[in-house]
Simulated assay, not measured.
Amino acid sequence: MSNFSANSPQIPLVVDNYGDIRWVLDFRAHPVLQRLSYDCGISHLRNGNYLFGDKTTSQLYEVTALGELLNTWKMPGYTFHHEVVEKPDGNFLVNVNKTGSTHPDGSPTVEDVIIELSRTSGSVTHEWDLKQLLDENRHALEPDPVDWAHTNAVAYDPADNTIVVSARFQGVVKLGYDDRIVWILAPHKEWGSNRRGEDLNKFLLTPLDASGQPIAAADVALGTTNHASFEWNWYQHSPWRMPNGDWLLFDNGTHRNFDPNPGTYSRAVAYRIDPVRHTVQQVWTYGKDRGAETYSSIVSRVEFLPEVNHVRFCPGYQVPTATGTGGKIIEVDYATRQPVFELSLTTGNGFGFHRADATHFGQ
């Protein structure tokens, strides 16, 4: 995603494996979309069109590859931020702010609600309010009571009809349509109860070592130190369900182990979660050894490419490049952990992209 100028819309573009720009969607002259702000990016729908939410208008849009506007969905009572994804049934899961959302004392909150929007009727068919489900008073990572959760991504799990939400300042949580919590993937420090009186500690996952045994060290579970074969996710983005059921994340590493200083490395990491035993095992990771050269404190993306068994690791903000800073798109062989492709994008402000996705555009 980029901008032509400060007063123009953000634009999506397609770059091929040689670094050549193959496609740009330019909305500068469009009567509706000329001030478009995608926030997290644009996604490819199964019908071949493109879907995005706009922060400027807080609406969802479907367009063709030629930029023709086909459908628009309004969300009265909500404003869009970060991401919208298509479910297998065609409905949309959307990260939103809810108008009038407050803590019990009346103070405002933002970025702590997920909705499902019917593609056909445009109505909200379900709402998950994280203030009801998580501990809105937990500030182990950030002290901000307004943006206490900062949801930045949502994914659907067809295996059990649940959603997985990345809350940057809390962790990753799996939620059911009955509003039950399935598990919480996060350091164990300072979890309390939710508004329903549930002790959230019972949903936390116990970390396992490489041999599948529980890690006895309490400081590893708390997140204050790492184990040789296990590290928690810190300020993560982009939960991605792999074909075998493992969960892939972009672990930004910001304030890793509750260190107030900036992080020193980001990772693509795959976790194997047992929802019955409430355990989590780190089964794959890439990026730690590359250190600052692939560290991104915010944004960024991972995805799994099952047809070639590769992981795409995409740090997107102020990543060092040969000519400045920006983002990198790195494709890694899952079996060997060796990069097979790497592309750097340099930008004037160091903001390479929020999200980079594989696409079969033009094929």
Rank of each mutant, 00 (worst) to 15 (best):
Ala29Ile: 10
Leu36His: 11
Pro9Ala: 07
Ser37Gly: 02
Ala29Leu: 12
Arg28Val: 03
Asp26Val: 10
Cys40Glu: 06
Ala6Ile: 09
Tyr38Gln: 07
Trp23Gly: 01
Val15Ala: 06
Ser5Gly: 03
Ile21Ala: 04
Val32Pro: 01
Arg22Trp: 03
Ile21Cys: 06
Arg28Asn: 02
Gly41Leu: 02
His44Cys: 04
Asn7Gln: 14
Leu25Ser: 05
Ile11Met: 14
Ser37Trp: 09
Ser8Tyr: 14
Gln34Lys: 09
Val14Arg: 13
His44Gly: 00
Asn7Phe: 14
Pro31Arg: 11
Asp16Leu: 13
Gly19Cys: 12
His30Tyr: 06
Pro31Leu: 05
Asn7His: 15
Gly41Phe: 06
Tyr38Cys: 02
Leu25Cys: 03
Asp26Arg: 15
Arg35Trp: 08
Asp20Leu: 14
Gln34Ile: 01
Arg35Val: 02
Ile11Pro: 09
Tyr18Ser: 08
Gly19Leu: 13
Gly19Thr: 13
Asp20Arg: 15
Ala29Glu: 12
Leu25His: 08
Ile21Leu: 07
Gln10Met: 07
Gly41Asp: 03
Arg22Phe: 00
His44Thr: 07
His44Leu: 09
Leu36Trp: 10
Leu36Tyr: 12
Ser5Cys: 02
Arg28His: 03
Pro31Ala: 03
Ala29Pro: 07
Ser5Val: 01
Asp20Tyr: 15
Gly41Tyr: 09
Asp26Trp: 15
Val32Arg: 06
Pro9Arg: 14
Ile11Thr: 13
Gly19Asp: 13
Pro31His: 08
Ile11Ala: 11
Arg22Lys: 11
Val15His: 13
Ala6Cys: 06
His44Asp: 04
Ser37Ala: 04
Arg35Ile: 02
Ser8Gly: 11
Asp16Ile: 14
Gly19Val: 14
Asn17His: 12
Asp16Val: 13
Leu33Ile: 00
Ile42Ser: 05
His30Arg: 08
Ala6Thr: 11
Tyr18Leu: 11
Ile42Thr: 07
Val14Gln: 07
Leu36Asn: 08
Leu36Phe: 10
Tyr38Leu: 06
Asp20Gly: 10
Val14Trp: 12
Val24Lys: 15
Tyr18Asn: 10
Ile11Lys: 15
Gln34Asp: 04
Ala29His: 14
Tyr38His: 10
Pro12Gln: 13
Pro31Thr: 06
Asp20Glu: 12
Ser37Ile: 03
Val32Gln: 02
His44Pro: 02
Pro9Gly: 06
Phe27Thr: 04
Trp23His: 09
Leu33Tyr: 05
Asp26Pro: 09
Leu33Arg: 03
Asn17Thr: 10
Asp16Pro: 10
Phe27Tyr: 09
Gly19Ile: 15
Asp39Ile: 00
Pro31Lys: 11
Val14Ala: 08
Leu36Gly: 02
